[in-house]
Amino acid sequence: MRAAAPPGTRRSTVVTDDDARLTVYTDGPSHAGVTAILSHGYLMTADVWRLQARELSARGVRVVRYDQRAHGTSDPGHAALTIDRLGADLAHIIDATTPQGPIVLAGHSMGGMAALTVAARQPELIRRRNPHVALISTACSRAQLAPGNHPRHWIKAAVRASYSYPLCWMPPAADAVRRRLPNRHPWALRPEAQHHDDIPPPGRQAIRHTPTEQIAELWQSLRTYTTADQLHALDALDDQVEIITGELDDWIPLSQTRELARQLPNARVHAPVAGAGHRLPTNRFGHAAVTQVLSGMAEAALRAPESTAAAPTRLRGVPI
């Protein structure tokens, strides 16, 4: 069952330079001292942040969530669907919704890659806004089919390849199959379906409007993406950057989290959350840990928006 919507959720639209209309959901007081901007992952919607939006807005933090282009109720625009484009979208969201004041940026999975891309491609924005940044279950290198070298990992890789490659090479055939799936199936294609609520559509509706060709285009970008050796502006924020993951994440394995930590030696790296998988913001073991990190960042940004924040309490877990 979905959690109750945060009170006072407000829906709006940000139009990008290629005419993509990105749906934005804002919670909390309009004139809060700090804003948290939350970016979701591949084949998800802004609904993945529902628990954090409720908790943070109740504490007086303004929360901005949005559906990534070609996800949820946001359209794909005219530009190629790449991680670079998602990074440019995030920069648009920051400038359009929160042109000034302390900010916390949090990205989960592909949303974290968008944040890393902003740091790599627009370092002046990072220097100018001096954000606190939470990188959640994300990586600075390309998506992997196999999360490790154990035999069960190769089985998972084979299963993923069995549907990812047909999606990439036979989009029209995939669309024909998707149109015949039950309406509640997460891969069902229903371009005519509408979502009129002010709250984000649930994750199972993330790609109900999205043709397979666009999904495949973004997947191919994920498979070639890297921001390694390009994160100097982000590393200069020192301990305003925090990295958190789940110990059982089999989409962004711990080896990629360690690589991200090597790229950001000044970041705070939390012990992996015990028992948690990839979908950390809603995971029963991980959602409280994510909320704790974001709450600590918001408090630190509010206390000292122009200076390095004090260290939050470390999370319980196992060594990374």
Rank of each mutant, 00 (worst) to 15 (best):
V15K: 13
D95Y: 10
R160N: 02
T227Y: 07
R54V: 06
N149Q: 10
V48M: 14
D67G: 03
A46Y: 07
V241I: 04
V118A: 09
A53T: 05
A176C: 09
T245G: 03
A115F: 10
A115M: 15
D89N: 06
G296I: 00
A233I: 11
H78K: 11
I243Q: 01
A304H: 13
H153P: 00
I155R: 14
R128D: 15
N149L: 04
L181F: 07
S295P: 01
R160Q: 04
H132F: 13
N149I: 02
V24Q: 01
W49F: 01
G41H: 09
L145N: 02
P102R: 10
A146F: 00
P102S: 11
I320W: 00
N283P: 12
A139C: 11
L302K: 09
Q205L: 13
H92T: 12
G286P: 02
Q292V: 03
Y42P: 00
M170P: 00
P200Q: 10
P253M: 06
R208M: 14
H40K: 09
K156N: 08
D250W: 01
V290S: 02
S39E: 12
Q52F: 06
A32I: 09
P253Y: 03
G277A: 13
S141Y: 11
A174F: 02
I199G: 04
T224L: 04
V133I: 13
M170R: 00
H40V: 08
D239H: 13
I136M: 10
P312C: 09
M1K: 12
L51H: 12
L315S: 10
A158H: 01
T82V: 07
D239Q: 13
P102L: 12
P265G: 12
D235P: 05
L86I: 06
A80Q: 15
N130D: 12
T224M: 03
G286T: 00
P253K: 03
R303F: 06
M1S: 12
A96Q: 14
A267L: 02
I126N: 03
R121D: 11
A20Y: 02
L294S: 08
Y42W: 08
H232G: 13
A58N: 15
T257N: 08
R316D: 15
I94P: 05
H71D: 03
N266T: 06
G60S: 06
P265K: 12
R262N: 10
A4D: 14
A176Y: 11
G296E: 00
D250I: 02
A300E: 02
S141D: 15
L254P: 06
D175I: 10
T97G: 06
A193Q: 09
A157T: 02
R316V: 14
E213Q: 15
T282E: 10
G107Y: 08
S57T: 07
D238K: 14
D89C: 05
A158C: 06
A134M: 13
